[in-house]
């Protein structure tokens, strides 16, 4: 499937996603995910304060921004891993407020994590099988009766096998996930997410810590998701990658959305350049995510 996409091939970009001027909070023709007035504060610090944002269906959207812009926190809020102080947000027209993370996932919104969460002491195959939805054998009482779930288990295994071949992990299927390299774990996490046939895949820094040799393969897989009709939202730092595969880019800084648009226009937006340059003094101590910046600020307060 992905073999025909060579490193030099230019992926087909989706266009005409928005209605009217491309500005922060612009309406989309067919939004799959919308957020309204979502705000999250940690102590006195506002981590996320998004007035309005819509994620276009069937496209690849990149969420970019300097360190501490609140991208991961926003991800956590959208997927039920964190609760905002206020605001409402919807997925496919269904409200996600107060919906626990596991239900969000069952609705077809699957996420991955910045630090990979491959389940180290499970085999690669078990990791994959865990991704499948609606398993009969996951009920404690039915689990005792193998004949009840055996058939479904075989189907799941076949599907997992297929995905592992596609992600070139089939040779490792009996190994512990802990034995995989960082890049392979990213691949496994993505493949595992696909086991549940999601409609929206949210990838938190899919390229972080990935060996350059695997980068292209990961990019191809992301493009593949789109060609199979899935919507992709990802957080990324690598501008090259963003420019290469994203159809739409949303820029966050200091918890707010400061710009939106197609990759090329957004990169030239002065607000974006400001956001990146202006944020640099915050990252001196090597803080890499919002929480560390928050603790750092507290420490600085402490010293004063």
């Amino acid at each position: 499937m992905s073999s025909n996409v060579t490193p030099t091939a230019k992926p087909v970009k989706s266009t005409g996603l928005h209605v009217g001027e491309a500005e922060p909070g612009v309406r989309k023709v067919d939004p799959i995910l919308t957020a309204d007035g979502v705000k999250r504060t940690f102590g006195g610090l506002t981590a996320v304060d998004v007035d309005h944002v819509e994620i276009p269906r069937g496209a690849i959207t990149a969420l970019i921004g300097p360190n501490g812009a609140g991208k991961t926190t926003f991800f956590n809020l959208l997927t039920g891993f964190d609760k905002p102080d206020e605001g409402k947000w919807e997925f496919d027209g269904r409200s996600l407020a107060h919906v626990p993370a596991y239900r969000v996932a069952r609705m077809g919104l699957i996420r991955t994590f910045q630090l990979t969460k491959a389940l180290g002491l499970l085999t690669v195959m078990d990791n994959m099988k865990l991704g499948a939805k609606g398993q009969t054998g996951e009920s404690l009482f039915r689990s005792i009766l193998p004949f009840v779930w055996r058939k479904q288990e075989d189907e799941i295994e076949a599907k997992a096998e297929e995905l592992l071949v596609r992600f070139k992990l089939d040779a490792k299927k009996e190994d512990y996930a802990a034995s995989l390299s960082g890049g392979q774990r990213k691949l496994l996490e993505m493949a595992r997410a696909l086991m549940s046939d999601p409609t929206l895949v949210m990838l938190d820094e899919p390229m972080a810590g990935v060996n350059p040799a695997l980068t292209q393969s990961l990019l191809d897989h992301i493009l593949d998701l789109k060609s199979q009709g899935m919507t992709v939202l990802f957080v990324e730092h690598d501008m090259h990658m963003v420019r290469h595969i994203a159809d739409w880019v949303i820029v966050m800084a200091e918890g707010r959305i400061v710009a939106e648009g197609d990759p090329h226009t957004v990169m030239e937006d002065p607000a974006v350049i400001d956001a990146y340059l202006g944020a640099h003094h915050d990252t001196d101590l090597g803080a890499t995510d919002t929480e560390n910046v928050e603790v750092l600020k507290e420490l600085i307060d402490d010293e004063q």
């Binding site: 101590l285 803080a287 603790v295 507290e298 420490l299 010293e303």
Partner: peptide, 17 residues
């Protein structure tokens, strides 16, 4: 004492500073 509280807050960050 302040260093102690800093370590209690976030050991790796304290080490970095």
């Amino acid at each position: 004492g302040k260093a102690t509280r800093a370590v209690a807050d976030n050991a790796s960050l304290a080490a970095a500073s």
